[in-house]
Write a protein that binds this DNA or RNA. Structure first.
Lengths: 161, 161
DNA sequence: CTCGATGCAAAATTTTTGCAGTCCC
DNA sequence: GGGACTGCAAAAATTTTGCATCGAG
């Protein structure tokens, strides 16, 4: 039924387990169910959609755990948070998140494109050096209009997820 | 009492009025009160703080109107939306928003720095040309740690607001 | 005048939290 | 076995909406 593989690849699963253990956190069934759900879903979704999917994998997963786990997935780099003012917050799951990509959101059709933005790496270094700040994550979010309105269909996303 | 001028400069006020009229919307007292409140407040604040300030200017301003006006201020370019996962959403008011700046948020002290990021202009053009998307707004949000933790105080913000 | 805009308060959404019981290590 | 984790449900926090009234043009 789902378009995406029903299982996260071993690499992602191990990455999450390692992350948890390295922080002294426990590898639990609900946490794994949420991770798996993130891989079953299409690339962008809301917290609520992720919960629904997680419940399908392990119907005991609660909303509370979902919200308690989401920050972990984000910190671990498995899931990315996006907020473009549209509807709700979206989360994107990539087998391996490419750190220097921008999210370009079509304001007409709400489609989200992942576009390389390699200069962000350089920018991070510059900020770091010039201001003495240790740079963590970077998010570049762009709103744009795609030709759909007139042409009828959006350009295919470049996200390889 | 406030650190910032109590009145928006004429340019910003006119810009907002023009914006409203150009869209066939009315220039009302509540809308102006909210605009003024945005100028009284320090550079970053929540919707709730903005409401409180607007009420001090015109105590009849309601939460509903605040939330109905905020999108207008954002579209008009007077206010900018920031979401770094910290607490709530922040809005920034600049007399003239510099479009190509990044928001760098210290994950220790939550201070927000506005840093020039001129390459965003070039990036927008590139996206536009290569993908056939008409680029609208761009937001670059960076998390970082500033030396406060050890040094006791954060670097002064570079925002000239 | 007329119709958009407003205030109020209720509702809808989204996220957080306290606590008793559960299960990983 | 102990303490971290969970589910539940209640609560908190944030945003939206319906409707009668108000006021800008």
């Amino acid at each position: 039924m789902s378009v995406v593989a029903d299982e996260p690849d071993v690499k992602s699963l191990d990455a999450f387990k390692s992350f948890l253990m390295s922080k002294g956190l426990r590898v639990t069934q609900p946490r794994l169910a949420i991770l798996k759900a993130a891989f079953v879903l299409p690339e962008h979704y809301t917290a609520e959609e992720l919960l629904a999917q997680a419940c399908q994998i392990d119907d005991s997963v609660s909303r509370a755990t979902l919200y308690r786990t989401l920050p972990l997935l984000i910190e671990c780099g498995t899931v990315r948070e996006i907020d473009v003012g549209k509807e709700c917050k979206y989360y994107k799951c990539c087998d391996t998140i490419k750190p220097f990509q921008a999210q370009v959101v079509c304001s007409d059709c709400d489609k989200i494109f992942e576009i390389d933005a390699p200069f962000m790496e350089w920018y991070g270094k510059t900020v770091s050096e010039r201001l003495g700040l240790e740079v963590g994550s970077q998010r570049l979010q762009v709103t744009a209009r795609c030709p759909k309105s007139e042409a009828g269909e959006c350009i295919k996303t470049t996200c390889d997820n």
